[in-house]
């Protein structure tokens, strides 16, 4: 079972605002999903390596050189931000 405190802790880690009703609902639902997931504890995996990607991957490197992009692309990316001042992205003060 996941407790109310745990749900609140996870919500904070995930930066998700939740309503009281939802906290209660998640207590129940996450518990039941994790209960189902517990079946993976039935097998011994002590000698098994973890798979992060389906196939063997090599490091892909490239020269450390700036690729030219059209200046309009940068403008578009800045335009996509919800709050800006000139060409700066505006956020609430961090400190």
């Amino acid at each position: 079972m996941i407790s109310k405190q745990e749900v609140q802790h996870i919500a904070k880690l995930a930066r998700l605002g939740l309503s009281q009703k939802e906290i209660k609902k998640f207590e129940k639902e996450l518990s039941s999903i994790l209960d189902y997931a517990k079946k993976i504890k039935k097998i011994d995996v002590s000698k098994v390596r973890a798979t992060t990607h389906p196939f063997f991957l090599e490091n892909v490197t490239r020269e450390d050189r700036v690729k030219k992009q059209k200046p309009t692309l940068a403008n578009k990316l800045v335009e996509a931000t919800p709050e800006k001042k000139g060409r700066y992205v505006k956020v609430k003060s961090v400190l």
Partner: peptide, 18 residues
């Protein structure tokens, strides 16, 4: 995030964060 994401997305983010 609390308002922009729908219920199932919030559920999966919660599960994955856990």
């Amino acid at each position: 995030r609390g308002e922009g994401f729908g219920e199932e997305v919030r559920r999966r983010i919660m599960l994955g964060t856990y």
